[in-house]
C-alpha cells in the first residue's frame, strides 16, 4: 500500500528545481551587479570631487599686484585690497602676506632666498554669492586707481574642471549602462537555455491549456528571484569594497581626488531590486517569444 497522505499533499512547482547551470548564472549576474555598483559609487564620488573643486574656486578671484616704482609691494597690495573692497559684488578683499606669496612659488623655486626677487603680492578676493563682481569690473576699478594688477577669476580652470567632471560622469553612466545591458543579455540567454532545457515541461503546460503569459510568468519569477539574490550578493560585495576604500583613504575617502562617503554606499541598495526587474523583463520577453513559436 502507498504511504501517500492525500491530506498533506502540496502541489509541486510547475518548473523543475534549479539545476547546476543556475549556480553559474547567479555568479555571473552577481559579478555584473558588483561591477555596476562599483561604477555607480565611482560616479557619485567623481561628481562630488568635481563639485568640491568648482565650489572652492567659484566665488573667488586672485589679484596679482605689481608695485610701481614709487611704492612698496605691501603698500600696493594694501591699496588694491582697499580699492577692491569697495567694488559692488565683492564681499571681502585681503592682501596676502609676503610669506604666503613666497610659499606659493616655493614648490617651483625650492628653498632659495627670495628676498632679492620682486615677488608680486597677491590679493584674495571673496565675491558675494548674489551678483558677484566679474573680472572686468575688478580690473576697471584697479586701473582707475592706477594699480598695475592682473585679475584671475579662475574661469579658465573652472571650465576645464567642469568639462572633465562632465566627461567622467558620462563615461561612468555609459559603463553602468553597458554592464546593465550585459546583465540583461546574460539573463535573456539563460532564459533561452532554461526554456530549451525545459522544453518538454513548457510543451506539456502549453498543450494542457496553460496561457502563454502564465508559462512566461513562471520563468519570469524564477529568473527575477535568481537575479535579485545575485544582486544582493553583488551589491553587498560592492558596498564592502566601497567601505574598505573609504576606510583605507581616511577622512577623505580613497583619496582627495575620489572622496567616497558612507552615504554613497547606500546607492547600492536598489541594486537587487533593479537586477530582479531587469531579469524579470528579459526573461518574460524571451519566454514569450519562444512560447509564441509553439503552435
Amino acid at each position: 500500500m502507498s504511504d501517500f497522505d492525500i491530506g498533506r499533499w502540496r502541489p509541486a512547482p510547475f518548473l523543475p528545481e534549479a539545476d547546476s547551470r543556475d549556480g553559474s548564472l547567479t555568479f555571473v549576474v552577481a559579478t555584473l551587479c558588483f561591477l555596476a555598483c562599483l561604477t555607480l559609487i565611482a560616479v557619485l564620488a567623481t561628481n562630488r570631487a568635481a563639485r568640491d573643486w568648482t565650489s572652492q574656486l567659484d566665488g573667488q578671484a586672485t589679484i596679482i599686484v605689481r608695485p610701481k616704482a614709487n611704492e612698496t609691494p605691501d603698500g600696493a597690495a594694501a591699496r588694491a585690497a582697499e580699492t577692491l573692497a569697495g567694488v559692488p559684488g565683492v564681499a571681502e578683499a585681503r592682501a596676502l602676506e609676503k610669506e604666503k606669496a613666497e610659499a606659493l612659488i616655493a614648490p617651483w623655486l625650492g628653498a632659495a632666498d627670495l628676498s632679492d626677487l620682486p615677488v608680486p603680492r597677491l590679493v584674495a578676493v571673496q565675491l558675494t554669492k548674489t551678483a558677484p563682481a566679474d573680472a572686468i569690473a575688478l580690473d576697471r576699478a584697479l586701473k582707475a586707481q592706477g594699480l598695475d594688477a592682473v585679475v584671475d577669476d579662475h574661469s579658465v580652470w573652472m571650465a576645464d574642471i567642469q568639462h572633465a567632471a562632465q566627461v567622467a560622469r558620462w563615461v561612468g553612466m555609459a559603463v553602468f549602462g553597458l554592464i546593465a545591458t550585459a546583465a540583461a543579455a546574460v539573463v535573456a540567454f539563460a532564459t533561452r537555455a532554461g526554456l530549451a532545457a525545459r522544453r518538454e515541461v513548457v510543451e506539456v503546460l502549453h498543450l494542457s491549456g496553460a496561457e502563454d503569459g502564465f508559462i512566461a510568468g513562471l520563468f519570469q519569477l524564477r529568473f527575477a528571484k535568481m537575479a535579485a539574490i545575485a544582486g544582493l550578493f553583488g551589491a553587498g560585495a560592492a558596498a564592502i569594497m566601497g567601505a574598505i576604500l573609504r576606510l583605507a583613504g581616511g577622512g577623505q575617502g580613497l583619496t582627495p581626488v575620489l572622496p567616497i562617503t558612507w552615504l554613497d554606499l547606500l546607492a547600492v541598495l536598489p541594486a537587487p531590486l533593479a537586477a530582479g526587474a531587469v531579469a524579470a523583463l528579459a526573461a518574460r520577453l524571451t519566454a514569450q517569444a519562444m512560447i509564441r513559436d509553439l503552435a
Partner: peptide, 23 residues
C-alpha cells in the same frame, strides 16, 4: 509526456492546477 519532476499525483492534478482550481 509525463513531467519527470512531479509525482504521479502531481502529474494527474496538472490540468486542474492550470485551470486555477484550489487543491
Amino acid at each position: 509526456k509525463l513531467l519527470e519532476h512531479m509525482s504521479a499525483f502531481d502529474n494527474t492534478a496538472l490540468p486542474l492546477r492550470i485551470e486555477g482550481r484550489k487543491p
